[in-house]
């Protein structure tokens, strides 16, 4: 084997190791990004909980936006004859939590009063849909 051929083969080898190094690097980056994304989703602590007043075992983590209603597609399914399919929703904007009635047939109550438009929620508020009542318990934030 002449030196030229050997050098060419070595050059090929060097090029291949460079490409392999790059590909491994990008595989690593892709993998890490997917992992950290999944981890972030997992670790995102809920801002608080919605506790059902008359059914203490029922507790929903509060991760806005979430919807309440009778349909099974809602984040919180309210199985009450007076609840509409999509009854109300809780969203977050400007650092506040908002409760909004989604044009339900029988309306949504906040601390016993029917709400009009968007209303700011506070710790300890009681959301009423039909006969069901949920108490909002926010986690203490730093």
């Amino acid at each position: 084997m002449s030196i030229e051929v050997a050098i060419f083969l070595l050059r090929l080898l060097a090029g291949i190791s460079l490409v392999a190094f790059l590909l491994t690097l990008f595989a690593v980056i892709m993998r890490q990004m997917r992992q950290s994304e999944a981890l972030l989703k997992l670790s995102a602590e809920p801002q608080g909980y919605l506790l059902r007043e008359d059914e203490p075992a029922e507790r929903h983590a509060l991760r806005p936006p979430l919807t309440l209603g009778r349909a099974g597609s809602n984040s919180i399914v309210v199985d009450d004859a007076f609840a509409s399919a999509l009854h109300a929703q809780i969203s977050e904007s400007e650092g506040k939590l908002w409760l909004e009635d989604c044009q339900s047939r029988n309306g949504t109550r906040l601390n016993g009063e029917p709400i009009g438009g968007r209303t700011i929620l506070a710790d300890g508020d009681i959301i009423g849909i039909g006969k069901w009542r949920y108490r909002l318990a926010l986690s203490t934030r730093e």
């Binding site: 981890l39 670790s43 602590e45 801002q47 934030r141 730093e142």
Partner: peptide
């Protein structure tokens, strides 16, 4: 929202 990165990155 409080995301505890110290915990989340050390699985």
């Amino acid at each position: 929202m409080r995301v505890d990165l110290t915990q989340s990155t050390a699985p």
